[in-house]
């Protein structure tokens, strides 16, 4: 059993209840798509699975461990096995693609190796292999701020491929990609999970993508599970019910601003003076 949520609720400090009474189980190797309108709680659910947050009520077990009860070292060990693809790839613009990809295994490398790799990338062939799978091998030594938004998102995916996680979480992994590439990329994630027997949980905005690539679909609305069905059993009615508040059938790709430039006073000269 790969993950198990039992009666989980999550209430933020400002009183907003993001999740309420969620129970969900998945076996190792399962591929699940989370769908639902914006603000339904998909990202919050993924954060719980990523051990970024602890539930307010209920229990979360990930990869046969309960993160809430773990010490720092054990938690680190668990987190090594969880890889996350983010909607906005969390990669510094000045980093080179090769470094950004190799960073996926920093949790497994000893400290010295991580530091040494800053001076000379230690596993260039490995990085090249995963980049080839997202069709970016030619950008191996490029700087991330030279890439387009879609390319950068694929670098984020390559990093998770390189990490070889047992649980792959993906939060809108293809929102910056054009439809053809989006389809190919989601397939890649699913294939990767299947070939290594890893579990995949992805939240997707585009419903058609979810239905065509994933075997199990979980619809989320207002912090609760609206339905949890095999892809073939999801009906038009269920979908229109799910998206009723948005007034649209199949939500299209949405891109959010990825990087806000650091808001530091600009006049460095005067700030360093005196």
């Amino acid at each position: 059993m790969s993950l198990a949520l039992a009666g989980v609720g999550l209430t933020y400090a400002n009183g907003f209840a993001a999740l309420d009474g969620i129970s969900l189980r998945a076996d190792q190797g399962e591929c699940i798509a989370l769908i639902g309108p914006s603000g339904a709680g998909k990202t919050s659910l993924l954060s719980l699975l990523a051990t970024a947050m602890a539930p307010s009520v209920g229990e979360v077990a990930v990869l046969a461990a309960t993160p809430a009860g773990l010490g720092a070292a054990a938690l680190k060990k668990l987190r090594r096995r969880i890889g996350t693809v983010y909607q906005a790839p969390p990669i510094p613009g000045r980093q080179r693609v090769v470094t950004a990809v190799l960073a996926g295994r920093l949790g497994q490398w000893p400290l010295w190796q991580g530091i040494a790799s800053l001076f000379y990338p230690l596993d260039v062939p490995g990085a090249r292999r995963v980049l080839a799978r997202v069709d970016l091998a030619d950008k191996l030594f490029a700087r991330c701020d030279e890439l387009s938004g879609g390319q950068l998102q694929r670098v984020g995916i390559a990093r998770v491929l390189y990490q070889q996680a047992d649980l792959i979480l993906a939060d809108e992994p293809v929102s910056a990609l054009d439809p053809a590439l989006a389809l190919a990329t989601v397939r890649l994630l699913v294939d990767e999970a299947k070939s290594r027997g890893a579990t995949l949980v992805a939240s997707l905005h585009a419903v058609d993508l979810a239905l065509s690539c994933f075997s199990r679909i979980v619809g989320i609305k207002a912090g609760q599970i609206a339905f949890d069905r095999p892809a073939g059993e999801v009906s038009e009615a269920m979908l229109s019910e799910l998206y009723a508040s948005e007034g649209q059938e199949l939500p299209m790709l949405a891109t959010e601003p990825r990087f806000s430039p650091p808001a530091v006073a600009t006049d460095v000269v005067t700030r360093t003076a005196c």
Partner: peptide, 10 residues
């Protein structure tokens, strides 16, 4: 930084 810590990086 947070993303890296979440995949177990020191």
């Amino acid at each position: 930084g947070r993303a890296l810590r979440l995949c177990g990086v020191p």
